[in-house]
Simulated assay, not measured.
Amino acid sequence: MDSDVLLEVAIQEAGYEPGISKLHNINISVKRGKLTGLIGPNGAGKSTAIKGILGLLPFADAQVTYGGSSDKYAYVPEQPLFYDRLTLWEHLSLAAAVYGMDEPEFEAEGNMLLEKFRMTQVRDHLPESFSKGMRQKMMLMLGFLVKPDVYIVDEPFIGLDPRATKDFLSLLEEERRRGAGVLMSTHVLDTAEKICDDFIMISSGEVVASGTIDDIREAASLPEASLFDCFDVLT
């Protein structure tokens, strides 16, 4: 495995029921400091592929290999998950304990994230009182807290207002400069075209194109087209 590759995925077949495959021959490689966009129409298999990577599918013929100095990864789900009786700060504290962060490091990183996402005022509130966007910001904060080698992010822009989106992209860029790799599923194609280094385009559970934006344009036979126009042709 190339030393610059932090996540290597080969899914031959995968699905939710025996004999009924939702994915076929999906290959994904995420490199150090790079952002790979997993794109496709609704129902194409993006979230199923992420579940396959995380080992959450009941039926999967797949190999998933992590590189880097550790096997740490952060998963940010599309639908926020939280404990009803824990405050925002207690969620962060629990994540820090799971990943073995010492108290001074946790205090510094946790407070930085609260300020960055403008959540300091709800530090001790229960997330059940949060809006959808605030819950999504909490999920992002939990991911950024542990500074993993790899981020696996499923539809991060849903529910985020423009300012929160800018804050998220700023932190993501900092993490990429640190050397982290990112796999991001999204259907926000205009943003994906601006920030992603390469793409895996899925349709009907199979890869229809992959590579840089120029590779995607070549596959679509549209040399000057936007990602959206290529997407429209290929899927």
Rank of each mutant, 00 (worst) to 15 (best):
T186Y: 00
A96Q: 07
R177K: 15
E103T: 02
T87N: 04
D71T: 15
T212Q: 08
H125N: 14
K51G: 08
T65G: 09
K22Y: 06
E17F: 10
H91I: 09
L114H: 07
D2I: 11
L142P: 05
E115G: 04
L23M: 09
E17Y: 13
E175C: 09
E90I: 13
G68P: 06
Q136H: 09
D61P: 04
E17T: 13
D167E: 09
C196V: 03
M1S: 13
D214K: 10
T65H: 14
K34F: 04
G40F: 02
S21A: 14
K132C: 06
T186Q: 09
K34R: 15
V9A: 08
G15I: 12
L169F: 00
M184H: 05
Q121V: 11
E78P: 12
H91E: 05
T235Q: 14
C196D: 03
M141G: 14
V233T: 12
T48E: 07
E105R: 15
A62M: 14
E107V: 12
F59R: 15
G110R: 13
S203K: 14
G68H: 09
F157W: 04
T191L: 11
L183F: 05
T65W: 07
I202E: 03
A60T: 15
I28W: 01
I39S: 10
Y66G: 08
E90G: 10
L23R: 13
L114N: 03
G205K: 13
A225W: 00
F228K: 14
L88M: 10
G43S: 03
V182K: 03
E128V: 11
G45W: 01
P41Y: 10
F157C: 06
L126A: 12
S21P: 05
L172C: 12
K194F: 03
Y151H: 02
L92T: 05
V233E: 12
L227M: 08
I20R: 13
L222V: 00
A225R: 02
E8Y: 08
